[in-house]
């Protein structure tokens, strides 16, 4: 059947794969999770605010947003970058390689 999907289907379709690294992973307690945020979550900053409310571990990980870096689909991303269904979004501390 043609036409837009009913709104009730959105949460099912709007799935994001979230990855955590280094101390962000340790504080959240898992290395990755699949989430279906509400429609109001449109960008990386909105996703951070929504994730921070999921558990005390998430709240601890995202307590200081200045210490968090993000990547969307394996490219570094700024807080205002849009997120879309199916995206792989990673959160981690500033990098310390080399």
């Amino acid at each position: 059947m043609a036409g837009p999907a009913p709104a009730s289907c959105r949460t099912e379709a709007w799935r994001l794969r979230i990855l955590y690294f280094a101390w962000v992973r340790q504080r959240v307690g898992v290395a990755e999770e699949a989430v279906s945020p509400p429609e109001a979550v449109r960008d990386v900053a909105g996703l951070v605010a929504w994730l921070a409310a999921r558990s005390p571990g998430h709240a601890s990980a995202f307590a200081d947003p200045r210490q968090i870096r993000a990547a969307v689909n394996q490219d570094f991303a700024t807080p205002d970058q849009a997120v879309a269904p199916g995206d792989e979004i990673a959160f981690f501390p500033p990098v310390t390689g080399g």
Binding site: F21, F76, F92, V95, G97, G98
Partner: peptide
């Protein structure tokens, strides 16, 4: 690479 590659 110290500032732009994801290593911790």
């Amino acid at each position: 690479l110290k500032t732009s590659a994801p290593f911790w």
